[in-house]
């Protein structure tokens, strides 16, 4: 029993301090251990080492003081005081590093933003140039189209004047004399072929146009008969045109008989002028304006 007490005393007084001595000072102050852990993490963080060396050094110094006092078995309050300072300084080092990194990042991002803006301006300039070029091309195309239209209009006018059409309030009107028909007949004679071919060629070329064929007579004979004769003559001309390949819906016919004389019926020369067929040519929309008189 006594032997055991001696043994226990021996272990307590000699062995334990020896063991502790071999393993270095016992690091079992929790605050110091926490500060050491935080510091060693910070120390192995290359960002903190690079960006906050001063704050890290201050943390290290405080930590060493804490460890020193601990080793010398100094006041516990003082050990913890420096451990606290070391821990806070470690956090300060971390924040300082992050602040410096962020400031570098701001600088980089600002120059990047400038570059992007320059790119944006370039892109905008290119886009503007493309728009301008496109507008120019469109203008050119419009001009060419206008020129084509003008040429076509000129051709139309030329063709019409070749066919001796005249300009009236209702548009271009081609007047054919009664020599195309035999007396009192609605049958076209051989002399009509030339006129039919001309009108047909014109309609084929200007395929947006339609025509209205209007028949007229002099005042000799009954009005009803004359109206019928003028209608049949107009229809005969329409048939002749259809035979050359013109669509029937492009041609309308009307027999006006004695109506709308262009000259007196009192003499043969006037009556000759009144016996006629008029071909009224539509505008480019295919619309023929009707007589209003």
């Amino acid at each position: 029993m006594k032997n055991f007490q001696i043994k226990a005393f021996f272990i307590a007084t000699i062995i334990i301090p020896l063991m502790a001595g071999c393993g270095g000072p016992p690091q079992n102050n929790p605050l110091l251990m926490e500060a050491e852990r935080a510091y060693s993490q910070a120390e192995s963080d290359s960002l903190i080492v690079m960006k906050a060396p001063v704050a890290l050094k201050e943390a290290e110094e405080a930590l060493e003081q804490s460890q020193q006092i601990w080793k010398e078995k100094g006041e516990k309050d003082l050990v913890e005081h420096y451990a606290y300072i070391a821990h806070q300084k470690t956090k300060i080092a971390r924040e300082t590093a992050q602040l410096n990194a962020a400031q570098d990042e701001v600088e980089r991002a600002e120059s990047e933003r400038k570059e992007v803006l320059i790119e944006a301006r370039k892109a905008e300039a290119i886009a503007a140039e493309q728009r301008a070029e496109k507008a120019l091309t469109e203008l050119q195309e419009e001009r060419e189209e206008a020129e084509k239209a003008r040429q076509k209009a000129t051709e139309l006018a030329d063709r019409l004047s070749e066919m001796e059409a005249r300009q009236s309030d209702r548009g271009m009107v081609l007047t054919l004399s009664d020599v195309l028909f035999d007396f009192d007949s609605a049958t076209l004679n051989s002399g009509a072929n030339k006129v039919v071919n001309e009108v047909s060629a014109f309609l084929k070329e200007f395929n947006d146009r339609t025509v209205q064929i209007e028949g007229f007579t002099d005042s000799i004979g009954s009005a009803a008969y004359n109206k019928d004769l003028s209608q049949r003559r107009a229809d005969a001309l329409k048939r002749a045109l259809i035979e050359t390949g013109i669509a029937s819906n492009r041609i309308t016919t009307i027999g006006y008989g004695e109506e709308f004389p262009v000259a007196t019926n009192m003499n043969e020369a006037g009556r000759q002028q009144n016996r006629r067929v008029e071909i009224v040519i539509s505008n480019e929309n295919g619309v023929v304006s009707q007589r209003t008189e």
């Binding site: 806070q88 956090k91 300060i92 924040e95 300082t96 992050q98 602040l99 962020a102 400031q103 701001v106």
Partner: peptide, 11 residues
């Protein structure tokens, strides 16, 4: 620490 943390967060 309060000062540095504020500056860092803001940045």
């Amino acid at each position: 620490l309060a000062q540095m943390k504020s500056l860092s967060e803001k940045a």
